[in-house]
């Protein structure tokens, strides 16, 4: 966890407090609280985790333990258009690895990183359950099926203006 203590803004502090309150500040609701918090902030930085820990009366270490355990939670901000490449079995068998390499090459970032302009971030996920469309790529909420390495450029172009 980062050692630099950044104070959470008053407004954000209230948002977190409200989220915790909506779950009656119950420690058992930690995962639900973190889902909601990540929904509003986009990610879960250390200082946000500290507030959650305080509100639910659990050690920060426990919150951190949960955040790092589950792949859905992230401590790094994602890009404006988060790109997720499915690396489930069906996608793997149908060439997801080549698609991933092409995204890395075009964006010049590694998995887990965000482009310098903050536009795209790259991650892998395990199966979105759309195996019939393998290989599958998600950009934000939009899903692309049967993606080939040649199609990567086209997908990125869709977001170049936005």
């Amino acid at each position: 966890m980062s050692n630099i203590k950044v104070k959470v803004k008053e407004k954000d502090l209230n948002t977190i407090k409200e989220i915790c309150k909506s779950f009656d500040n119950k420690p058992g609701e930690l995962i639900n609280v973190l889902h909601k918090t990540q929904e509003s902030f986009g990610y879960l930085p250390a200082e946000v985790q500290e507030v959650v820990a305080q509100e639910l009366s659990v050690p920060v270490a426990k919150v951190y333990g949960v955040v790092t355990f589950y792949s859905f939670f992230t401590m790094l901000p994602k890009g404006k258009h988060p790109i997720s490449i499915c690396t489930g079995t069906a996608c793997y068998v149908r060439g997801a690895e080549n698609v991933l390499q092409e995204f890395k090459r075009q964006l010049n970032i590694e998995v887990g990183q965000t482009t310098d302009d903050g536009k795209f971030s790259l991650s892998c996920l395990r199966c979105v359950g759309a195996c019939g469309l393998a290989p599958v790529v998600q950009v934000g909420d939009k899903t692309y099926g049967r993606v080939s390495p040649e199609g990567v450029k086209e997908i990125l172009a869709e977001y170049s203006e936005k």
Partner: peptide, 25 residues
Amino acid sequence: LRYGAGAFVCGEETSLIHSMEGLRG
């Protein structure tokens, strides 16, 4: 409803129950 957060091991009953309790699965 209780939400998972992406952990394959939570398919195991005892892990799943811990996860529902807000713990590491």
